[in-house]
Structures are given as C-alpha cells and as structure tokens.
Amino acid sequence: MSDIFPKWTNKLPLQIAVGALLMGTAVSAGCWYYLTPKYTRVGYQPIQPVGFSHATHADQLGIDCRYCHNGVEKSWYSNVPAAATCLNCHNAVLSTDPRLELVRESGRTGKPIPWVQVHKTPDYVYFNHSVHVARGVSCVHCHGQVNKMDEVQHAKPLSMAFCLECHREPEKFIRHPKEVYNMDWAVAPEVQANAGERFVREWKIEASQNCSACHR
C-alpha cells in the first residue's frame, strides 16, 4: 500500500488542535484587553481650543468645582461654564494674553468656545449628576483627580461594570456631602466601612441595579 499521506501528517491533528487553542487564546486575550472601555476610553486626552488647566485653577488657586460647573447640583449634566464665568477673573487677570483670545471673543460675541467633550456616555445611558453628588459620590470617582490634570484626560472607564461596581456596594464609595468636591480627600478603610454603611442607612440609598434605572 502506497503512502497516500506522508508521515508528517500523523502529527497534523494535534498540531491543528494546539494551534487553534493558541490562536483562540490570543484572540480572546486581545478582545478582553482591547475591546473594553478600559482600553478604548481611558487615556483619551483631546487637544482643547483653549489650554485651560484644571491643575492651575482647582488645585493651585483652590477654586471649587462648582464655581464654574455651577449647575451640577441641580441638573442631570454638569455644565461647561459660560465665557462670562471665565471673564469674572480674566477681565483683570491675563486680560491681554493671546491664549485667552477665544474666551474674550466668546464673551464679546456669544460665539461658543468649541470645547471637546472628554467624558461621553453612550446616548442609551441615563446618568444624573445631581443625584450622585447629593448622595456622596465625588467627582473623583468617575473623573479621576481632575485637579491634578493640566489637560483633562479620561481617567476611568465609565463602563457598565464600572457603574455597577459602586451600585452593588455603595457603602464602599460614598462619602460625606461636604467632601464630595474635595478632590484630595482620603479616608482609612475602616472609617469608610463604618461611615459608608451609616450613609446608606440614613440616606436610604437604594442604588438601582435594574436595567431601566440607566437604560430608560
């Protein structure tokens, strides 16, 4: 009987199986690593039309978040301030600086400054800022330490898993309302455990986990 298949084909089924396994592993690992917001969103740092530094304004000057984002306690979205808010100080400070020309122009004419939005939830997600800040979710939780950023970057994935992490165990994350806008606030874990449970109890927090809470 002649050789229809050469001898090396004896190993072929095993090689194919091992090869497929390796390929499968590599592809799955690639998808796991690259196709989630932890890769796609985190680190996004667009060039803004005006080089506004949160580090200078919030950290160095100690201006509260709400001086500019003044709607965050009442509104579902946290507004970008009107140019008039910038000009409250910049009428006098750096009043002729060419870097601020767009702001001055916006103040004069009402033409919006084309800021690039960094944190953008998908349109099928409902997120309300006011209820979160009123119940002890700090800016830092979702936006990172913006007060240390010269240019804002997307620091947290803001994926569904990220939201649920806190909605499942709010007591691990929420803080006293007075510290919500304190970007440098830190707490010992055992203090957090006690305080967090108390806040959940006293404020009757029922962090929703049903679909229609966010996908409404």
Binding site: Y33, V42, Q45, P122, D123, Y124
Partner: peptide
C-alpha cells in the same frame, strides 16, 4: 491600556451609542 491618546475613543459596537 491607559496610554494617552488624542484620538476620540473607538466605539466597538456603535449601534445606538
């Protein structure tokens, strides 16, 4: 992950994003 990028995030399944 987390590398700084100037490009807007890729939306992997952009169905109703």
């Amino acid at each position: 992950r987390g590398t700084l990028s100037r490009k807007p995030p890729i939306e992997v399944f952009p169905d109703m994003d």
